Measured scan of single mutants.
Amino acid sequence: NQASVVANQLIPINTALTLVAMRSEVVTPVGIPAEDIPRLVSMQVNRAVPLGTTLMPDMVKGYA
């Protein structure tokens, strides 16, 4: 099972992602792969992401 990126805190809309804001977890459905965490740092989310939410490619500006 592949680990996905999960919000480690509430991430407000247009907030730049940080290492502290993300964690890796095996979840269903699978979201952005955990190995992409370094690439996600400083990218912005295009919606509010609640704690525990799996990050999907369409939630991160410039990711997809």
Results as ranks from 00 to 15, higher is better:
Pro38Cys: 15
Pro12Leu: 10
Ser42Thr: 14
Thr53Leu: 10
Thr54Asp: 02
Pro12Glu: 11
Pro38Ile: 09
Ile32Asp: 01
Thr53Asn: 08
Tyr63His: 03
Thr28Cys: 11
Glu35Cys: 09
Gln9Ser: 08
Pro50Leu: 10
Met59Ala: 07
Ala64Lys: 14
Asn46Met: 12
Pro38Gly: 10
Asp58Trp: 15
Leu55Phe: 07
Gly31Pro: 00
Asn46Lys: 09
Glu25Ser: 10
Ala21Leu: 15
Thr18Phe: 05
Val27Ala: 05
Val41Gly: 03
Thr15Gln: 10
Gly31Glu: 01
Ile13Asn: 14
Gln2Thr: 12
Met59Tyr: 11
Met22Pro: 01
Ala7Asn: 02
Gly62His: 08
Ala21Asp: 10
Asn8Ile: 06
Arg23Glu: 03
Val5Ala: 08
Leu51Cys: 12
Val45Lys: 02
Gly31Phe: 04
Thr15Lys: 08
Leu17Gln: 00
Ile37Val: 04
Pro29Ala: 03
Ala16Phe: 15
Pro57Cys: 07
Ala3Gly: 09
Met22Leu: 12
Asn14Glu: 07
Pro50Gly: 09
Val27Asn: 03
Thr53Ile: 09
Thr28Ser: 11
Val5Cys: 06
Gln9Ala: 13
Leu40Met: 04
Val49Ser: 02
Arg47Gln: 12
Ala34Ser: 09
Pro29Glu: 05
Arg23Tyr: 05
Val5Met: 02
Asp36Trp: 11
Ala64Leu: 13
Val26Ala: 07
Glu35Leu: 12
Thr28Arg: 07
Val45Leu: 07
Asn8Val: 07
Asn46Arg: 10
Ser4Ala: 03
Pro12His: 11
Asn14Tyr: 14
Arg47Val: 13
Val30Ile: 14
Asn14Leu: 07
Ile13Gly: 09
Gln44Gly: 05
Glu35Pro: 06
Val45His: 02
Leu10Met: 13
Gly31Asn: 02
Ser42Pro: 01
Met56Pro: 03
Val45Tyr: 00
Pro50Gln: 09
Leu40Phe: 01
Tyr63Leu: 05
Asn1Gln: 14
Met22Cys: 05
Met59Asp: 09
Lys61His: 12
Pro38His: 11
Thr54Gly: 01
Ser42Arg: 10
Val45Glu: 01
Arg23Ile: 06
Val27Leu: 04
Thr53Cys: 11
Thr15Asn: 07
Ile32Cys: 05
Ser24Asn: 05
Glu35Val: 13
Gln9Asn: 08
Gln9Pro: 02
Thr54Ala: 05
Asn46Ser: 12
Val6Asp: 03
Pro57Ser: 08
Ile37His: 01
Asp58Gln: 13
Tyr63Gly: 01
Val26Tyr: 14
Met59Gly: 00
Val45Asp: 03
Met43Pro: 00
Ile13Met: 12
Asn14Val: 05
Val60Ala: 01
Val6Lys: 00
Leu55Val: 08
Met56Gly: 04
Ser24Trp: 09
Met56Phe: 11
Ala16Trp: 13
Ile32Phe: 02
Gly52Leu: 05
Pro50Ile: 07
Glu25Val: 08
Glu35Tyr: 11
Asp36Leu: 11
Pro50Trp: 06
Pro29Ile: 05
Thr18Tyr: 06
Val60Asn: 02
Glu25Trp: 09
Ser4Phe: 03
Pro38Val: 10
Val60Lys: 01
Val20Cys: 12
Gly52Asp: 09
Leu10Phe: 15
Val20Arg: 15
Ser4Gly: 04
Pro33Arg: 09
Ala16Gln: 14
Tyr63Val: 02
Gln44Asp: 05
Ile32Trp: 01
Ile37Phe: 02
Tyr63Asp: 02
Pro29Gln: 05
Met22Arg: 00
Leu40Lys: 00
Ile13Tyr: 13
Asn1Ala: 15
Ala7His: 01
Leu10His: 14
Arg47Gly: 05
Leu51Glu: 14
Lys61Pro: 08
Val41Ile: 12
Arg39Leu: 13
Gly62Thr: 06
Asp36Cys: 14
Val60Tyr: 01
Asp58Ser: 11
Pro38Asn: 13
Gln44Thr: 15
Lys61Asp: 10
Asn8Leu: 05
Pro50Phe: 11
Thr28Trp: 10
Gln9Met: 14
Met43Trp: 06
Met22Gln: 01
Leu40Glu: 00
Ile13Arg: 12
Thr15Val: 09
Leu55Arg: 03
Ile37Thr: 05
Arg23Ala: 06
Pro12Arg: 09
Gln44His: 15
Asn1Ile: 15
Leu19Pro: 06
Thr15Asp: 06
Ala3Thr: 07
Leu55Trp: 01
Asp36Phe: 12
Pro33Asp: 05
Met59Ser: 01
Ser24Pro: 12
Val27Glu: 02
Val5Lys: 03
Leu10Thr: 12
Val49Trp: 04
Ser4Thr: 04
Ser42Ala: 12
Thr28Ile: 11
Ala16Ser: 11
Ala21Met: 15
Ile37Ala: 05
Leu51Lys: 14
Thr54Asn: 01
Val26Asn: 09
Val6Glu: 01
Arg47Leu: 07
Gly31Leu: 02
Asn1Gly: 15
Arg39Ala: 08
Val27His: 01
Ile13Cys: 12
Ile11Phe: 02
Asn8Glu: 05
Asn8Lys: 07
Thr54Cys: 05
Arg23Trp: 04
Asn1His: 12
Leu10Ile: 10
Gly31Lys: 03
Ala64His: 15
Gly52Ile: 02
Asp36Asn: 12
Gln44Lys: 15
Asp36Glu: 15
Leu19His: 07
Ala16Asp: 07
Leu17Thr: 00
Thr15Pro: 02
Pro29Arg: 04
Asp58Lys: 07
Ala64Glu: 10
Met43Gln: 06
Ala16Ile: 14
Leu55Asn: 03
Val5Glu: 02
Gln2Trp: 13
Ala7Asp: 00
Asp58Met: 10
Ala3Cys: 11
Asn14Thr: 04
Leu19Glu: 07
Ala7Arg: 01
Ala7Ser: 08
Thr28Tyr: 12
Pro33Trp: 08
Asn14Ile: 05
Val30Ser: 13
Pro29Tyr: 04
Ile37Lys: 03
Met22Phe: 04
Leu40Trp: 03
Val49Met: 02
Thr53Ser: 13
Pro57Gly: 07
Pro29Phe: 05
Ala48Gln: 14
Leu19Ser: 06
Gly62Asn: 13
Gln44Glu: 09
Val45Gln: 00
Val5Ile: 11
Thr54Gln: 01
Ala7Phe: 03
Met56Lys: 07
Met22Tyr: 04
Leu51Thr: 15
Ala34Pro: 05
Ala21Cys: 11
Val60Asp: 02
Pro50Ala: 11
Ala7Val: 09
Tyr63Arg: 01
Ser4Pro: 00
Glu25Pro: 00
Lys61Met: 13
Arg39Thr: 09
Pro29Lys: 04
Asn46Trp: 08
Leu19Thr: 06
Met43Ile: 04
Thr54Ser: 02
Thr53Val: 12
Pro33Gly: 04
Met22Gly: 01
Ile11Ser: 00
Ser42Gly: 15
Lys61Trp: 12
Thr15Tyr: 13
Leu17Ile: 10
Met22Thr: 01
Gly52Glu: 04
Lys61Phe: 10
Leu17Tyr: 00
Gln44Asn: 09
Ile11His: 02
Lys61Ile: 14
Ile11Gly: 04
Ala21Lys: 09
Gly62Cys: 11
Pro29Asp: 04
Ile32Met: 03
Ala21Glu: 04
Thr18Gly: 05
Gln9Tyr: 12
Asp36Thr: 07
Glu25Tyr: 07
Val20Ile: 13
Ala3Tyr: 12
Ser24His: 08
Asn1Thr: 15
Val49Cys: 06
Met56Ser: 06
Val20Lys: 15
Ile32Thr: 01
Ile13Pro: 12
Val27Arg: 12
Leu40Pro: 01
Pro12Trp: 05
Gln2Glu: 12
Leu17Glu: 03
Ala34Glu: 08
Gly31His: 01
Ala16Asn: 08
Val60Cys: 05
Val27Lys: 06
Asp58Thr: 11
Ala48Cys: 14
Arg39Ser: 09
Arg23Asp: 02
Gly52Ala: 04
Gly31Ile: 02
Met43Ala: 06
Asn46Tyr: 08
Gln2Leu: 13
Val6Tyr: 02
Pro29His: 04
Thr53His: 12
Val26Trp: 13
Gly62Ile: 04
Leu40Asp: 03
Thr54Trp: 03
Gly52His: 08
Asn14Lys: 05
Pro38Gln: 11
Val30Thr: 11
Leu40Gln: 00
Met43His: 08
Ala21Val: 12
Val41Leu: 12
Ile37Trp: 02
Gln2Arg: 10
Pro38Glu: 10
Asp58Ile: 09
Leu51Asp: 11
Leu19Met: 13
Pro38Lys: 11
Pro57Asp: 05
Leu40Ala: 01
Thr28Ala: 14
Arg47Pro: 03
Gly62Arg: 06
Pro50Asp: 09
Gln2Ala: 11
Ala48Pro: 09
Gly62Pro: 03
Ala7Tyr: 02
Asn46Leu: 15
Ser24Arg: 11
Val6Phe: 03
Ser4Arg: 03
Ala34Phe: 05
Asn1Trp: 14
Ser42Leu: 09
Ile11Lys: 00
Thr54Arg: 00
Asp58Pro: 06
Ala3Ser: 10
Gln2Lys: 11
Leu17Arg: 00
Met22Trp: 00
Ala34Lys: 05
Ala48Gly: 08
Val45Pro: 00
Ser42Val: 04
Leu17Asp: 00
Gly52Cys: 04
Asp36Ala: 12
Arg39Asp: 06
Ala21Gly: 07
Asp36His: 14
Arg47Phe: 06
Asn46Asp: 07
Ile32Asn: 01
Asp36Gly: 04
Ala64Trp: 08
Ser24Ala: 15
Thr28Glu: 15
Val20Gln: 14
Val41Asp: 01
Ile37Asn: 02
